[in-house]
Design a protein around this nucleic acid. Structure first.
Lengths: 405, 405
DNA sequence: CATATTTATTTCAGTCGGTAAAATATTTAG
DNA sequence: CTAAATATTTTACCGACTGAAATAAATATG
C-alpha cells in the first residue's frame, strides 16, 4: 500500500505538518512559534511539537534576536526560529548548450561556491551526462575543500520534457536518447539523492523559495534565455500538467500560419522573440550579416538603427500579446519575468507593459503585478538548488521517526 | 476560528471523507463498499462508517443488483450502493440574453421538468433579477405540482465575472449594476440556499459530474454559445484564478492588433469566432445583409457560397489556434468542446482538429483527447443543476452531526 | 522590591478520525 | 454439511491535533 515513488514522496499527516512549518519558517526568514501557529491556523501545541522535531533534526534553530510582541512590550517574549543554514549542503546544476553551471548552497540558500565548465558536446548520452555532472560536482566541491560525499542532495536542471516525479527524461536537448529513467544511473554514480527537473520549473521554484514569489500561492514565472519558458505555481505547488512536462509557452501560437519556428511549426511566440528569430530578422535581407547575439541588436538599436529598433519592437509586441494571454487564462496573483544577465529590455519596456495591460480583459480588480527579475547568470543553477533544498527538506522530514522529546 | 463563507464551505476531515465517498458513488453510478475503499485508498472500516452516515441521511441507498466479485463467485457478495435520487430536488437556472431556462433535477441529476421564459430586458437590477428567477422557479415547480419550498438548492448561471465563493457578481451582462453581493437578496427572496456562478464554469461542472469529464482530474471545457468560454478543472476542482472569475479564453489574443472585439480590444479570439464576428464578416462588405445567425451562414456555405465557406473556415482556424494554445499551456488529460444545439460544426471539423494537432508541441505522449459534446439547449441550466447538486451535497454532508449507528 | 498583568510556550488529558485485526455474514466448492 | 472465499462490521487501539491548565518570562504598578 505504501507507494512512494523514487524522488517524489507522499507524506503522512504529521510530516506534512512539519514540512508546512518548515516552509513557513523559510518564507518568513525568522518567525516565532505563535506566529507560525496563526499563519498555519493551527494550535500552538502542534507548533511546539513540530518545531521540537525540526530542532532535534538540526533543520532549524532558535535565535536570540528581539521580536516585537503583538501589542505592548509586556509578556513573555517570542522566541524566533530560523533555518539552520549549516545543516546541509545542496548542489544545483544547470546543463545548457555549451556550459554546465553548478552552485553549492547551504540550507538557507546562501551560495557557498559556484563553478562553470565548458561542455564538449551539447548532447550527451545519459551515462556521459551523469559522469560529466559528477566531474563538475567534484570540481566544485574541491574549490571549498569538500568532497561530494558532503552533499545532501543534487538537483539537475535540463531543458526539455521531464517527468520530475520519476526522474524520467522524455526528451532533452542535452541528451542524445529519449525516454530515459535516470534513477538507476543516479543511484550508481552519485552519492546522494538527485532530482532532475525542467529548467523553467526550477526558476519558478527559485522565485517561490527565495525570489519575488516568496509567500505567493498562484503565480507564473516567464523565463527568458535564448527562448522563453514558463513555470506555473498554483496553490503553492508547481503545476506540471498531465504529462508532467513543462508548459510550452514559447510554442503558443501568436500568429496564424506565422513565422517558422525551430520546432517546425508556424507562428510560435518563440519564432518572434527567440534569439535566433531576432538574428534571423536582422540578417535575412542582408541588412546585417554580423549579428551574433541579441546584445548586438540592442547596440545597433541604441545607435539609431531603425531596423534593429523595429525588430526588437515587434518581439516586444508579440511577447506582450503572449503574456496578456497568460493573464487572461490563469488570472494569477503575479507574473514574474525572469531573465539572466542577457539583454531583454525590449521585453519589459513601458510599451510592452502597456500592451499587456491593454490585452487583459478589464475587471474591477487590479491587474496582476508584473515583476521583472534580472538574475545573474547563475539563475538556472540557483533554481536547481532551490528545488534541491525543497526535495532534501522533504527527505529529511520524512527521515524523522515518530519521536518525541 | 470557524470561518465558513456564505456559500462555499470548508469541511472538516470527516465530512471531507464522507463527501469523497459520495463523489465516488456518484461517479461510479453504483459501487460496493470494498470498491470504494480501494478507489479511495482507505480502509473498509472507514467506508462502512461513512456510508452508514450517508444512508441514514438518505443521500444513498443499498440496491439489490448483482455485482460480480473480484475473482471467483465464492464469498459474501458485494452490496451495491447508489445515490438516492429521491432524496432532494435541485433547480438549475441559466440567465441568457433574452431567455431564462430552468431545469429541475433529482439528486442523481435526472431531469424532473424544465421550463423557459422570455426576458423582457436583457439587463436587470439585482432585485429584479432575483424576483424574475423566483417567478420562473415557481412556474417550473407548478408544472409538476410542487412549490419552491420543495427545493433543496438553487443554482444560477450568469455570464460575467463572478466570485462564486461569495455569491458576488463583479460584473454580468444580465445585471445593470456592478459589484453586487447577492447573498442578502437570496436570503430574502428564495426559500433555500442559492449559488451564483459563471456559466462556463457550470458547464465544466456538468461535464465533470455527468458528462464526458466524469472521473477525470484535469480537463478543460470550451463552451460555445454566442462567444466562447472556458472552464478549467485541475486536480478535480474548478480553477478560478486569483480574482475568482472565469478564464477569459474568448479574449485571448490570436492576432496582433487584429479585428475589433466587442470588449473594445483587438485580436481577441471572440472577434474571429463569436457569432457577431461571423455575421459582421458576412455583412460588412454588403455581401449578405440578411444574415441573422450562424446557422444562416452554414446554410449559405452548404449551398456553395464561397464567402460563407471562407468565413467559417477562418473562424475554425483561429479556434484551432486558440485550442492548441490551451493544450500547450495546460497539458490537460482531455479537452471537451461543449456546445448547445447551435451550429458549430465549423469549429470541430477535421481541418480544425488537424490544425490543433499541428499547433501542439510534440511529445512522446499522445495528444490529449478532444471530445465534442453536443448538448441540447438546456446545457447551461443542466450545468447549473450539476453545480447545485454538488453544493447541496456539501451542505447535507455538513449537516450530518457526529452521529454513529 | 513584590506583586499583578500580559503574552509565549509547554504539558497534559482528552477528542476525533482512521486503521488493523478479529468477528461476523454470506456466498460457492467440494 | 463443512471448508474456503470474500464482504462487511465490530472492536480495540493509534496517532495527530487541540483546549485548558500549567509554566515561563517579560513589563507595569504601587
Amino acid at each position: 500500500m505504501l507507494k512512494s515513488k523514487a524522488s517524489v514522496v507522499s507524506l503522512d499527516q504529521r510530516n506534512a505538518t512539519r514540512l508546512r512549518v518548515l516552509e513557513q519558517i523559510r518564507s518568513q526568514g525568522s518567525v516565532s512559534r505563535i506566529d507560525i501557529a496563526s499563519a498555519l491556523e493551527t494550535s500552538p501545541a502542534t507548533i511546539t511539537s513540530a518545531t521540537a522535531d525540526l530542532i532535534s533534526a538540526g533543520l532549524i534553530k532558535e535565535i536570540e534576536g528581539e521580536a516585537q510582541s503583538k501589542s505592548g512590550k509586556r509578556g513573555r517574549p517570542r522566541v524566533l526560529l530560523q533555518l539552520d543554514g549549516q545543516s546541509f549542503l545542496v548542489a544545483g546544476l544547470k546543463v545548457a548548450r555549451q556550459m554546465i553551471s553548478v552552485i553549492l548552497v547551504d540550507f538557507e540558500g546562501n551560495e557557498v561556491t559556484s563553478h562553470k565548465a565548458q561542455l564538449e558536446d551539447a548532447r550527451m548520452s545519459p551515462a556521459n551526462l551523469i559522469s560529466t555532472i559528477r566531474l563538475a560536482l567534484e570540481d566544485t566541491c574541491q574549490q571549498v575543500g569538500l568532497s561530494i560525499e558532503h552533499l545532501a542532495g543534487i538537483s539537475i536542471g535540463l531543458a526539455g520534457q521531464i517527468d520530475a516525479a520519476r526522474n524520467f527524461v522524455h526528451w532533452s536537448s542535452s541528451v542524445t536518447e529519449r525516454n530515459i529513467d535516470f534513477n538507476p544511473l543516479i543511484a550508481k554514480e552519485l552519492p546522494c539523492p538527485a532530482f532532475v527537473e525542467n529548467d523553467a520549473n526550477l526558476v519558478a521554484k527559485a522565485e517561490q523559495l527565495f525570489g519575488l514569489g516568496k509567500g505567493l500561492k498562484n503565480f507564473l514565472v516567464v523565463t527568458i534565455e535564448h527562448g522563453v519558458g514558463l513555470g506555473i505555481v498554483l496553490d503553492g505547488r508547481l503545476y506540471r500538467g498531465k504529462r508532467g512536462c513543462g508548459a510550452e509557452f514559447g510554442h503558443t501560437k501568436v500568429q496564424l500560419d506565422g513565422a517558422l519556428c525551430q520546432c517546425g511549426q508556424r507562428g510560435c511566440l518563440e519564432a518572434y522573440v527567440g534569439d535566433y528569430a531576432l538574428i534571423r530578422e536582422m540578417t535575412v535581407t542582408g541588412h546585417a550579416d554580423d549579428m551574433q547575439t541579441v546584445s548586438d541588436i540592442h547596440t545597433r538599436a541604441n545607435s539609431g538603427d531603425d531596423r534593429a529598433t523595429s525588430v526588437l519592437a515587434r518581439a516586444g509586441q508579440m511577447f506582450g500579446l503572449g503574456v496578456s494571454n497568460l493573464i487572461n487564462l490563469f488570472d494569477p496573483q503575479c507574473i514574474i519575468v525572469s531573465g539572466a544577465q542577457m539583454s531583454f529590455e525590449h521585453l519589459c519596456s513601458a510599451e510592452v507593459m502597456t500592451r499587456i495591460q491593454n490585452g487583459v480583459v478589464n475587471v474591477d480588480a487590479p491587474l496582476p503585478e508584473i515583476k521583472v527579475h534580472h538574475w545573474g547568470d547563475l539563475m538556472w543553477a540557483k533554481g536547481a538548488a532551490a528545488y534541491g533544498i525543497e526535495q532534501v527538506s522533504i527527505l529529511k522530514v520524512k527521515g524523522l521517526a515518530a519521536n518525541a522529546s
